[in-house]
Nucleic acid binder design. Structure first.
Lengths: 245, 245
DNA sequence: CGATGGCTTGAGGGTATTCAAGTGACGTGG
DNA sequence: CCACGTCACTTGAATACCCTCAAGCCATCG
């Protein structure tokens, strides 16, 4: 039974999201993408492959056709902070040309990927020359900053079970308030994404089960009472459940 | 003696930084500012004054002539996460027109301020119409996102004494590697800025004193051995001491 | 069948928080 | 000039939270 669930894992989110859910930049980029088509180089990459490292010289940016990518920073002490985990349809490495020309984080494949690389130069050209594109790109970069602000808030203020609850609620919303859902990746990776040890994640889920009535069966989670979960979680946040930022 | 120090506190950084230290956006904005001059409305605000709240409708952005401003997010539970503390010469509220038209954080005066407000519309107009400005603004917004990435890394990976040491090293660098410096604000505010309780800050400083040889006299800090401090601190970071990102 | 990997659970320890009390500097008003 | 209150800061003790280490479970795979 957990086996079926695991096979089902990839399904809900392994397709590129529909147009309505996309940010202005993603929308525009998908329509502009045709222009870049001849420049794009597709690659299939296995789990564990490092696309680029923090401070590598940046000449390309990437579009994820399928699979998942994690963005991270690594310290000299060997610890790693995960900044984000990107679903299919996302773009990464795209802001390098606004910065020093170096990537400001590392990117690694966490679920076998098909990605397409494009020269940053075409993006840069388009950004300076196409006004609609400029606007959309600026909004895109601003949204990224905003998402990080939110992330700082969550990591400072929420405890472990609340961070997990918040993560589940986000999944829930992305799937039309489904009351049953499947975790998109390994639990240990979600734990890292949320800035906690795998054991803490495991205990946190158990705690949520006790306190908010959710039911857990391997990677499958049932949420009989979304409001109870939101009450428990959103008390430690600046916005309440059907939240977008 | 601590009294003199306290009086001295504001001096080192209470003037607007010189041109060389400014980001491309700040540089450009300072030269463009003349264009907006007639639109600017100066205000003197006392400590504690809230300039705007998270999710207020945004119609203006602000330039800090003197004093300090903190940017923060507040949860329903009453906790507060400080995103940044801005020195004179900074601009805030400027990205609102790229987002939903609402401020995405609150801003509060922490040291009596003189700030100048400008309509966001003039900034927006300039951004779309002046290409140099567009580029500089895009870099500015990207740099803000990068700073937040770094912040996430530091908060996930560093312990309390290391975060304090990192903060001190940053001050140090901003003042030309001075071996003696004065904390720019109250310790309790620095603690909040670093995401820890005031007591933890106090104990962390004591710990640094023991482990790295720095000397503490009220708000004044002596650093006889910068390298020792850097060794202690930067092990839990992706970059080493004379770091800019 | 054993090996592996993801996950869970328990025990122990470390770090940070909270609560509480105490100190010293400063400003006010008698 | 001194008594008093306020405020920032420090220190101690108790607690909460999370991490690490270790063992064990279960499903998968060769």
């Amino acid at each position: 039974m957990a086996a079926e669930a695991k096979k089902a894992r990839k399904n809900p989110q392994d397709s590129i999201p529909s147009l309505e859910e996309l940010s202005p930049f993603d929308k525009l980029w998908r329509s502009t993408k045709q222009l870049f088509k001849s420049e794009g180089i597709p690659q299939n990459l296995p789990r564990g492959h490092v696309v680029f490292m923090h401070e590598d010289k940046a000449s390309k940016f990437y579009f994820i056709e399928s699979g998942w990518i994690k963005l991270f920073r690594e310290t000299f002490g060997g610890d790693e902070a995960i900044l984000d985990v990107l679903p299919p349809g996302s773009v990464f490495g795209e802001t390098a040309f606004c910065e020093s020309g170096l990537y400001t984080y590392g990117a690694e494949v966490i679920e076998d990927c098909r990605i397409i690389s494009y020269p940053l130069s075409v993006l840069e050209k388009e950004t300076w020359e196409n006004k609609d594109f400029t606007i959309a790109f600026l909004q895109h970069v601003a949204a990224r900053g905003l998402a990080r602000d939110k992330e700082i808030e969550l990591r400072s203020v929420q405890n472990a079970p609340q961070r997990i609850g918040c993560f589940i609620l986000r999944l829930c919303r992305e799937q039309g308030n489904a009351t049953s859902l499947c975790l998109p990746w390994e639990k240990s990776l979600i734990a890292a994404r949320l800035g906690m040890a795998p054991e803490t994640f495991s205990r946190g889920l158990a705690r949520l089960q006790k306190d908010t009535g959710i039911k857990i069966d391997g990677p499958v989670i049932e949420i009989p009472n979304i409001k109870a979960l939101a009450r428990y979680t959103c008390i430690a946040c600046s916005s309440v459940f059907p939240c977008t930022n």
